[in-house]
Design a protein around this nucleic acid. Structure first.
Lengths: 380, 380
DNA sequence: GGCACGATTGAATCCATTG
DNA sequence: ACAATGGATTCAATCGTGC
C-alpha cells in the first residue's frame, strides 16, 4: 500500500501534469522504492538524485527486488550471490527511475567503492549516458584507524543523462561565476555533514547513518536544474534533497520506506526557508544575442560592396559582395567559411577575424554586429 | 610468437623462481597481453599496475575556442565493438593477471568514467578485494572547451588484493612520514606528464598518447611494494612503470604489443638511475594558497542569498545570489567581474572590494575566505 | 641573462539552429 | 527525419622568441 505524505506541515500539495498522469509535488511516498516508482507517471521529473544503499558484504540488510532479505554472507559462493542480488536490485531501481525521467532529465547517483562500480556498469547497460563522474572530497574524513589503507577521503557521484545526445540542463555560466571565473571541476571539496546540520534523535544520537551535507545537494541542484524543476529522490532518507530543493525553489518528490526517517524529513523540510526573491534564484546565464547575418551589414550600407576585408596582419584580403558573401581570390563564401579557409583551420568566426580599414585604422567587423544588435534591442 | 627483450641495453637479465616456473626480470615481452600472461609462471609477481585502454568512444572532432584541433586518443587499440566486447576483454586480462599474482600481491588499475565501472565490477566478480579507490586529481587538466560539462579533472585508480583477507604490503608509516605526518588520503594531487618528462618522437610529437607521470607510479610503488619486489605491467606502453621500478629498486616485467612503444621504453629505462632518496620522486609541493570559490560562502551559509554587498563608501550596492554570483542593478556576474564593472576598471579582486554589514559595521568579505581556507587547508 | 609575451598542449564520450 | 552552417567555447604549465 502506498501512502502519500505532504512535504510540509501545512499539508499543501501541488501537482504537475505529465505524459503519464499527475505527479504530486513536494511529497514523500512511504514504501518500497521500486514499487513506488512504478506508480509515478512516466517522463515526469527533471532531475534525479539517488543515494542507494551499498551494504554489499556487510550482511543483514540487503534487499532483493522482491523485498526478501539476503542473508549475511562470508564465503565465496554467497559473496557472488550477494553481488548478483545487489546488481538485480540496482538494475531494477535504475530502470524504474529511467521511466520516470523526462527525456532531457539527468541522474545523479552517489556511492563508494563498495557499490559505485556496480551502479556505474548497470546504468551504462541501461543506456544512460555518463556526463561526468564527480569526486566529493571530504575536508574532514574519518581516519583509517588501523593504518592498513589510505584514508578513505572521498565518495564518487555519477552524473548521467537518460540517453546519449539528450539536451540536459547545465548552468555553466552560473557555476563559473561562483567559482572565481574558472569552470567548475570534477573534484569538489565539501565537509561532512556535522554539527547543527546533522539531525539528531531525542537520545542525541544521529538520526540517519549517512545524512549528506546540504552543500553537496545545493551544488548539484544549482548545476543541473532550474527553479521550478521537479527533483526526485528515490532513497529520501532524512530528506536532504527535499530541504535543499525547497530552499532553492525546486520541487521535490521523495520515496522512503522507513517512517521514522520520513518523520525527520518532514519536520526538517517544514523548517527550511525558501529563497523568496526570484532574482536571486534564476541561474546566471550569458543571454544569447540574436544572430545577425553579415548581409545586413551590406544592406544597411555600413560596408559597400567591393570593400576590402583583411585579417590583423593584412596577410589575407577578401572582397565584400552584394549578397553578403565575400571573395578570396576567386573563391566565394561566407565570412566564416572564407576565414577558415584563409587560416587553414576547420572553422572560424568571421566576425572576430575580418577587419576593415577606416581612416587608416583597422577595425573589426564585429563592431557592426554590436551596432546592429543595439538597434535591434532598442526596437524591442 | 613471444619475444623476450632485456629491459636495459646491457642486456642483463635476471630471473626469479616461483611455484609455476622461472620469471625473467626487468624484461619487456612483446605481444598480446593475454597470451603473454598465460606463459608467465603462476603466483610470481608482488604488484601489478595496469593502464588498460579506456574505450573512450569519442564522437567527431573537437576544436578549441581558437579553432585548433584537439589531438584525440583515436588509436586502434582503444577501439572496441561494444561494451560487451570491452567487458570480455577486461575479464580475460584480469583473470590472467590474477593467476600470475602471488597470494598477497595487490593490483592497481587506472581508468576514467568511460571504463572504470566496467573494470571495477569485473574485478569484484573475479574475487579481487577492493582496498581503496584512489583519485588522481590533475593540477592541470584539459578544460571543457564547449562549457557543456564539468572539467574532467581526475582519473580513478582501484587498488585491490588478490583475495579477501590477504596480507598485502602497505607502507603506512613511510607514506605518513612523507605526507607531513598525516595519513595519506585517497585523493592525490599530481600534475599531468608534460615537459621534459614527456617522451617525444623525432618529429617532436608525443611518443605515446597517454603517458602517465612518474610521480603517480612512484607513489604506488612506494605505498604497496618493497625493494626487490616484482612489479608487472601488462599494458607497458612507454614504460613509466619500468623506469620508476628501476629508480626505486624494484624489478619489473612488462608486456606491450607495439614495438615502437617498446623501443621508447627500453631506451628510457636504460637511462633511469636508481635513486638514493625516494623523496626525489615526490610531486613538487604547491605553496600557493588554495582558491576559494565565493559560492562556498553561500553554500556554507556564511552569507544568505539576497545579502547586500557594498564597497567601502557604500556607493555601489550588489546583491548575493544562490549560485555565488552577485547582481548589480540587473547585471549578474562574479564578485570580480561586477566589482570591475562598478569601478569602471578592467579587473578587480572582489574579495578585497566588497563588504557586508554586520552589527552595523562594514566587514570585508575576504574574512570569509580566511576562515574557509583554514578549514579546508588540511585537504589541500 | 632576465623578463614579458605568445604559442602550444593535455585519455574529451563537448552545439544549436535553420531549412 | 537529416544536412548544412553560423559562430560560441578554455585552464595550467611549459617552451620559444624577442627585447
Amino acid at each position: 500500500m502506498l501512502r502519500m505524505s505532504p512535504g510540509s506541515k501545512k499539508g499543501e500539495s501541488r501537482a504537475a501534469a505529465s505524459p503519464g498522469g499527475i505527479l504530486p509535488l513536494d511529497t514523500i511516498f512511504e514504501g518500497d522504492c521500486i514499487a513506488a516508482l512504478a506508480r509515478l507517471p512516466a517522463q515526469s521529473v527533471d532531475l534525479v538524485f539517488a543515494d542507494p544503499p551499498y551494504n554489499l558484504q556487510l550482511g543483514g540488510d540487503l534487499q532483493r527486488p522482491d523485498n526478501s532479505m539476503v542473508d549475511a554472507v562470508d564465503d565465496d559462493w554467497d559473496k557472488f550471490a550477494s553481488l548478483r542480488h545487489y546488481d538485480d536490485f540496482t538494475n531494477a531501481w535504475l530502470a524504474a527511475v529511467k521511466r520516470v525521467m523526462k527525456p532531457d532529465a539527468t541522474l545523479w547517483v552517489i556511492g563508494s567503492y563498495h557499490n559505485i562500480f556496480r551502479v556505474g556498469a548497470s546504468l551504462q547497460d541501461l543506456g544512460f549516458w555518463i556526463l561526468n563522474d564527480i569526486v566529493w572530497r571530504k575536508s574532514n574524513p574519518m581516519p583509517n584507524f588501523r593504518g592498513k589503507r589510505f584514508t578513505n577521503a572521498h565518495e564518487t557521484l555519477i552524473w548521467a543523462s537518460r540517453d546519449q545526445g539528450s539536451r540536459y540542463t547545465f548552468n555553466y555560466e552560473a557555476l563559473k561565476a561562483g567559482n572565481e571565473d574558472v569552470q567548475m571541476r570534477s573534484d569538489w571539496l565539501i565537509p561532512l555533514c556535522t554539527g547543527a546540520e546533522r539531525l539528531k534523535g531525542d537520545d542525541g544520537r544521529k538520526a540517519h547513518p549517512t545524512q549528506k551535507p546540504e552543500t553537496l545537494l545545493a551544488r548539484i541542484l544549482l548545476a543541473a536544474s532550474r527553479p521550478g524543476d521537479v527533483v526526485l529522490d528515490p532513497f529520501f532518507g532524512s530528506g536532504t534533497t527535499g530541504a535543499v530543493a525547497k530552499k532553492l525553489g525546486r520541487h521535490f518528490v521523495g520515496i522512503e520506506r522507513d517512517p521514522d526517517y520520513i518523520a525527520y524529513a518532514r519536520e526538517r523540510i517544514a523548517l527550511a526557508e525558501p529563497v523568496d526573491d526570484a532574482a536571486m534564484l534564476a541561474p546566471a546565464e550569458k543571454r544569447s544575442e540574436p544572430r545577425i547575418p553579415f548581409a545586413t551589414v551590406i544592406e544597411r550600407q555600413l560596408l559597400q560592396p567591393g570593400a576590402i576585408l583583411t585579417d590583423t596582419n593584412g596577410r589575407h584580403e577578401a572582397r565584400v559582395r552584394v549578397d553578403g558573401s565575400i571573395m578570396l581570390g576567386d573563391i566565394v563564401g561566407s565570412i566564416h567559411k572564407i576565414g577558415a579557409l584563409a587560416q587553414g583551420l576547420p572553422a572560424c568566426n568571421g566576425w572576430t577575424f575580418w577587419h576593415y580599414r577606416e581612416d587608416g585604422k583597422l577595425r573589426l567587423i564585429d563592431e557592426f554586429r554590436t551596432v546592429l544588435r543595439k538597434e535591434l534591442a532598442a526596437a524591442g
